[in-house]
Design a protein around this nucleic acid. Sequence first.
DNA 1: TTTAATTGCTTTAAGTTTGAAATTTCATGC
DNA 2: GCATGAAATTTCAAACTTAAAGCAATTAAA
Lengths: 170, 170
Amino acid sequence: MDSSDETALHQDAALSRTRLALWQKLQKSASVIEDELRRRLRRDCDSTLPRFDVMAELAAAPDGLKMSEISDRLRVSAGNVTGIVDKLAEEGLARRVAVPGDRRASRVELTEKGQGAFAVLARIYESWINEMLGNLNLDDVEGMILRLDRLVDALDTDEFGALSRKSEER
Amino acid sequence: MDSSDETALHQDAALSRTRLALWQKLQKSASVIEDELRRRLRRDCDSTLPRFDVMAELAAAPDGLKMSEISDRLRVSAGNVTGIVDKLAEEGLARRVAVPGDRRASRVELTEKGQGAFAVLARIYESWINEMLGNLNLDDVEGMILRLDRLVDALDTDEFGALSRKSEER
DNA sequence: TTTAATTGCTTTAAGTTTGAAATTTCATGC
DNA sequence: GCATGAAATTTCAAACTTAAAGCAATTAAA
């Protein structure tokens, strides 16, 4: 092994360490923000993050979504979606609609009440995010989006099982 | 309201939207990576992410940590830490040590077996991260670290309750 | 057809996580 | 001393999650 090989190895190792540090910061940021969102949703809106996430997916899908589509997009188990949708339905925020031609499946959609409730929630939610990310300026935000897009592309591509489905399906 | 006010408002609204988009990407990246780590830890190492996280904190603290310190640093409930440490202790990977002068508290530290086990885990873990973040080069990584540091600083500063404790205590 | 395989969803059991008591110990003021 | 409040953990119940099993309906094959 000559010295240029050694240098290359050393650089690889250093980059690996730096990537690890990045992951730790990414993880911490995400969990700090998520915890705070959870707390505020519970405290101020009598709701939860999983419910908000499901409603957000439904609000973005004018024709509703099948249970399996919700489960794929949010990357949570099918059984879990059943429970969340059950509760939204109990509260009159969402409903299951029969799919003509397939009696196994059902489409889930927001009720009018659900749409109204989500519209309120979404505004508050965005303002919270805007507050929490308040010290990142436009350049920062765009720079990070650029790099995260690249990261997500790689994660989707790199086989990582169940998680690539989302982009494949679109 | 004159036109310059309107422009300013519009820019604020646009920035708010962009920040929201950033958060969504951040959240997705983190959860995709986390899910994959969870899966691999279970499949290849017969372990879990919370256990790994606790061991990592302990490994980085030569004198061990109090239960409350673990709970603060990982931002999980105190009751949860009790359970995780119980299991690590059962398996001989960690132990509780009495704190002289305070019979309420106990200090948790890795056993030698625990240190050995963690050393192995940590190498594998870093290689996984290095693989998953493989398409981010040094510039990307450093650019993101820079911005995430600023974000974390703001999150710590901005009162956000329980979450600022970590940095305050150091 | 009849059979087999797949799909979409729900149910169940087991394990996590949390938030709120409950417990024990420490610290302080009186 | 003694009472009161705070601190460090643990216990406990409720909510959430997942993986696996189960069902019913659909599709494909023989």
